[in-house]
Design a protein around this nucleic acid. Structure first.
Length: 607
RNA sequence: GCGCCCGUAGCUCAGCUGGAUAGAGCGUCGGACUUCGAAUCCGAAUGCCGGGGGUUCGAAUCCCUCCGGGCGCACCA
């Protein structure tokens, strides 16, 4: 339990006591909700609460008077060192060292599972994401969907949910027919049909099929073979690595691949439409079949079967979502680009018309990714032949950083640092080459530093990370050390909130704050002539070991490991690597600018 | 026209279940290396929180309205 939660229950206890004493009306206390916050200013104590202000309305007493009353009751709590009343009636609370020690103890005891709810305590959730048409390689714009969906899935797991990650494969209808036709054309050395696909991967796909038993005769068999190859790829191929491999490179693994075509093959679409018909939710107009979406909240009715007899994508989507419910999921989370938001109502309405629990259906919408190239808008289009693939971007960043995985880390950072409601402008050139000023390195460096302190403690001083004891924790008296413990204490809350709001960016902001707080402490300590481990200069003097406060070092090692553990867990939750050391790539260090600094102004003013 | 999202520092964005003097990164300027890792740290400057009205002890946050931008409004997927 973090300090906020500890203070909250202490405050609630204090209120109950005041109610029993007749000092406060019970119904006012029951109805009031109050906040516990870290105050922005250090002189306002460790935590502040507006409980007196919140209660003032209902209790009918001046907030200041209430504040004095509650402050007095709160002073009895063991975690409270002092309470002052400030401003209109805020309570500023300073906590006891024991309270901080308790929090650190909880972090250490929980280990890697700290902040996570016990697995399986939550809902059964189906997170459906990516679901891009298997007619081409995944593009950078798809990466936001993949990364957002994956991070939300990880967050829900941390919140205790049983999560299934699913990719809905649109292997039915016009688009795959066009892909198959394009591949056949390519095999015959002809140009692709109107509106077809002409990328290099089409040629490669045709070549691979020819080399492996030839193209199937039937169009459906060919389409199936093409989709399989688009998903699984061809080993060693640059152009046709496969959607699954691209996702794996991003750290995204789906549990299930659900075929749209199978819904038709098993007659599920027809069944769903029959049920809608029985429910009286279908109308026939102009030879087409409409779902009466306007019975719910929607602008117009939606076509499920066109006048030429073909089912729409929406028809199979109804069957698909009905199937998700039938599989027993408590919650369906779909991750869609904001351009599909008009779709939400019709799917929800269809579920309702089928008599299914529509409130289980939920859509996470993310705003769109627009591309820039060196700051100017970059129009990407199939017809323009300038599609930017995820593979391509990952490859270039990996090369620039000299590490496989750097590209995935950078992309995950770029897409997870923004809230879903914020559109993202991704500059292709910067994403590709300017990896060194990428803030993801700051995050990772923080972890490398923590890890390297522990490694040095072991290698140079033979120190292992000690077991937690209250006595050891009591040695952490530096204000920055207390501050970091407080931050670690609020990690469970951050996770729970991020999961509930489907907002992975909150975890990332939290980690940046923790990293910054530690880096700042680290330098401050040095400026104060102190250090976690005895420095080389100190060890030069005779008898240094006798003067070394070994216990303080051990307390700090315990603390460093607690921070490192939370930090690594948080990064892991976002799918970003937490390296123990960072290697600066060749040519990354800027040239010494002492000469340039002198020369440049002279040139400026030369004329 | 209707619906959803957005408008906060020079730029990119947090903060939005109402709380004290509105934050971060980048950029700018000025400092700190006898390195437990300087991919770091410290300091400074910069804001009618798009405009107006309302609710309240208190509004970036809630309500109304206007302005500006993105997306959507198919018998496409």
């Amino acid at each position: 339990m973090g300090l906020e939660d500890k203070l909250r229950s202490a405050t609630e206890n204090a209120l109950q006591r005041l109610v029993r004493q007749g000092a406060l009306p019970a119904d006012a206390v029951r109805a009031a909700s109050f906040t516990i916050d870290r105050p922005k200013r250090a002189e306002h104590g460790d935590l502040a609460t507006n409980v007196a202000l919140a209660l003032g309305k209902r209790a009918g007493k001046p907030p200041r008077e209430l504040a004095e009353l509650i402050a007095e009751a709160l002073r009895a709590a063991p975690i409270v060192a002092s309470v002052t009343v400030a401003g209109p009636g805020f309570l500023n609370v300073t906590l006891t060292p024991e309270a901080f020690a308790e929090v650190l103890g909880e972090v250490c005891a929980a280990g890697a599972g700290y902040g996570r709810a016990p697995a399986g305590t939550g809902e059964r959730v189906l997170v459906e994401f990516v679901s891009a048409n298997p007619t081409g390689p995944l593009l950078v714009s798809h990466a936001r969907n993949a990364i957002t969906g994956d991070a939300i899935a990880r967050l829900l797991e941390a919140a205790g949910d049983r999560v299934t990650r699913e990719y809905y494969v649109n292997d039915f209808g016009n688009q795959v027919r066009l892909l198959a036709a394009s591949v056949r054309a390519s095999a015959l050395g002809q140009p692709p049909p109107e509106g077809g696909y002409g990328g290099a991967y089409v040629k490669e796909l045709a070549g691979w099929l020819l080399a492996h038993g030839g193209l199937p005769d039937g169009e459906e068999d060919l389409a199936r073979a093409c989709v399989t190859r688009m998903l699984d790829g061809v080993p060693g191929s640059r152009e046709l690595g496969g959607i699954k491999r691209t996702l794996r490179d991003l750290g995204v693994l789906h549990d299930a691949w659900f075929s749209e075509e199978s819904l038709h093959r098993w007659g599920r679409v027809g069944v769903a439409l029959d049920q809608l018909r029985v429910a009286g939710a279908l109308d026939e107009r102009d030879g087409a079949l409409f779902f009466r979406s306007t019975d719910g909240e929607d602008d117009k009715d939606r076509v499920v079967q066109k006048s030429d007899g073909a089912f729409t994508y929406f028809a199979s989507d109804i069957a698909y979502h009905a199937d998700k419910i039938a599989r027993g999921f408590d919650r369906l989370v779909d991750v869609w680009g904001a351009d599909h938001h008009g779709y939400v109502a019709r799917v929800r309405n269809a579920l309702e018309a089928l008599g299914l629990p529509k409130e289980r259906f939920e859509v996470v919408l993310y705003q769109l990714v627009s591309l820039l190239r060196d700051g100017v808008p970059y129009k990407m289009g199939k017809r323009l032949g300038n599609l930017v693939t995820i593979d391509e971007v990952i490859e270039e960043i990996d090369a620039a950083a000299g590490r496989v995985g750097a590209g995935a880390d950078a992309l995950r950072y770029f897409f997870l640092i923004r809230s879903s409601d914020s559109p993202i402008k991704l500059d292709i050139e910067i994403a590709k080459k300017a990896t060194l000023e990428n803030p993801v390195f700051y995050l990772q460096y923080g972890h490398a530093r923590l890890a390297s302190i522990l490694k040095r403690a072991h290698d140079v001083f033979g120190l292992e990370i000690p077991r937690f004891t209250p006595e050891l924790a009591a040695r952490l008296v530096h204000p920055d050390e207390r501050d970091l413990v407080q931050r670690l204490g609020s990690y469970p809350r951050v996770l729970a909130e991020a999961a509930a709001e489907r907002a992975p960016h909150k975890v990332l902001f939290y980690l940046q704050d923790v990293g910054q707080a530690f880096q700042s402490y680290y330098t401050r300590l040095k400026n104060e002539g102190d250090a976690i481990l005895p420095q080389a200069s100190a060890r030069g003097e005779a008898g240094w070991e006798a003067r070394w406060d070994r216990e303080k070092t051990e307390a700090r090692l315990l603390w460093v490991e607690a921070i490192r553990g939370v930090y690594a867990a948080g990064l892991g939750l976002l799918g970003i690597a937490a390296p123990d050391r960072m290697v600066r790539p060749e040519g990354a260090i800027e040239a010494d600018d002492s000469e340039a600094g002198a020369a440049a102004p002279a040139k400026e003013h030369g004329a």
